[in-house]
Design a protein around this nucleic acid. Sequence first.
RNA 1: GGGCCCGUAGCCUAGCCAGGACAAGGCGCCGGCCUUCGGAGCCGGAGAUCCCGGGUUCAAAUCCCGGCGGGCCCGCCA
Length: 661
Amino acid sequence: MVSENSKEILDPYGHIINTIVEKIHEYLEKNYNVVGKEFLRSLVEEPSVEAYGDLSLPLFRLARPLKANPVKLAEEIANRIDSIPYVKDIKNVSGYVNFFLDYPGLTKLTLDSVRSLGEKYGYLPVDKPLRIVVEHTSANPIHPLHIGHARNAVLGDTLYRLLSKRGHIVQRRFYVNDLGRQVAIMLYGYLNLPETMRPIDVKPDHWIGILYAITHTLIEIYELKKKISEAINRGDNELYRELIRELDRLVASANELREKNRELFDYLANKLKEKDNEKEIQDLMKKMEAGDQEVKEKLREVVEICLQGFKETLRELEIDFDKWDYESHIVWSSLVKKILEEARKSPYFTIHKGAPALDLPRLASKELYRRLGITLSLEIPPLILQRSDGTTLYTTKDLAYTLYKFRDFQADKVINVIGAEQKLPQAQLKLALYALGYKREAENLIHYSYEMVNIPGMKMSGRLGKYITLDEIIEEAKLRAEKEVLKRTTLETEEEKKQVIEAVAVGAIRYTLVSTAANKPITFNWEQALSFETNAAPYIQYTHARASSILRKYEEKYGSIQWDNIDYNAILENKKRAKLIKLIAKYPSIQAKAADDLKPEILVDYINKLADTFNSWYQEDPVIHEPNPGKRNLKTTITYAVKIVLANTLETLGIKAPPRM
RNA sequence: GGGCCCGUAGCCUAGCCAGGACAAGGCGCCGGCCUUCGGAGCCGGAGAUCCCGGGUUCAAAUCCCGGCGGGCCCGCCA
């Protein structure tokens, strides 16, 4: 099945580097001490200046183990090693060995690869596929998705695509936090409404968002009023003034909420006025956790309304899930109870502040933290498992859920896409797993952490109903895309135009969210997100459409692409041809690295460089008008390869690549 | 009080983990290119104390220490 040369077909550039390393290693082994091949390979780099060649091996770090002078060694290697496949010339420059590639050879190798793999070019499969769960988005079902969730969702979905294309078996899961206090508040509001006031012509999650914010704000106001009269009775003036200020703020939010849905607001304001809301919510939470039949049904009903809205939004962004897991299911199916029992038997079980807990600080050690990928200086407190009243805490449920994910999918690895603010609980989770004897799971649980998305001049708050929804952002993106597309499109039918507008709008959003490294905060900016110029999604899409168009015209004139009569030597006639073929050759290893390092931004960086180089080449070196058939075939096959690579990177980023725009 | 992340031209970002040869792109700004394959493009130019100060090293944007600025976390919340 695997042919002799499959490696070089799948990964032309990687193959060439391996060949070079092989030769150097052979030489050093014969004449000096033994040096690890992997180490040697890690030293190979791309020179910063073109004049220094295509690949370079700095010898400074080798000098010590080999007991050699780097400058002399470079000289020696350059002189003594004369022939390496795909290498035309070897030169030494003060401690560096520089390699100049044989471009006709590289071109043939690369185009052979593209020819035999076609649209699959670039997807380098791993030797051992893993079963991987990617849990992402997992927004609380109490308000619509906003821009922060969008970063989570897009990152999670892109990781899924990267890993799948790398050959892993990947499952996407969404964890529905349906047992928290926030959900209880929303459910409480819902239960106080007559059926006639359920949502009709609003998007379901938007309605839920308002219901939650109104219920929350009203309850806060009523509680605050009680505290204020207490403060008056006690004559505590300072407290009184402080509470009044807080009340003013809440009333201001309440007025804004009332504007959004008067009927709902006035009804609940009246209904909740005289009740002991706090007590009723406590009762509701207990019933929710216990799985009270009646509450259970209503809970699922109201949560489903919100999830319906999530699904609509996510579908717009080409995001889908394989499994929706409910926190309530984890609790009701006694998985949590089992974990608690195991914890009680664990040697790390302790009582902390009067509550049952795991003594995680006892596990603190350099060795273990490194293995689990926990930052050494992170101080991890004991993990309290249960409240004094017996109800369970979030991380305990998460402990049960994590094991459930591993078991349900027989996963080798579980990746949680969760905000950076949850670093501590995620580290606790790992240590707790370890403490309970789940070493494999602890070691293969990955917290893929990302920083916040800020909207300039705005502080978002779900509780007060202050946020910009993802739906609004998508809507705005479409409006802006429409304006830009209609200005320039060559398409004629309305249907085609609509598709391109959507592809451009969604592409712009996904691209923006994935192009900045996850550990850096993003300040959301329309101009930048929806830029139609270099370094943005539409630019890549446009370049792809342009390459497609060239190929279409070629085929109209000459028929199908000619692979058999290619003038490989002609690659040397134009520097940009060579630059392009090198980029194309590198693609499989770049795509693989982006997947292995979980860094989509590597792909974004690459795709830009490729589009730049192609556009620049296109400007000065005509393809179809090339009269010489051998050269024309070279140029067309390069164009074809560029088109494939652009389409595949866009596909990996979840961005559509229309052939015409 | 302790901890984590970030700090690269007016603005946005890459490079930092595995230190190497003049710090790489984009936006914006200035000047050019439409009778040739799609100008959402191309070519050229100006613009940087790589937050500051020490240290390690033949070599530091990159590693270590100490500051400064911004965000986040330290709950019987989720």
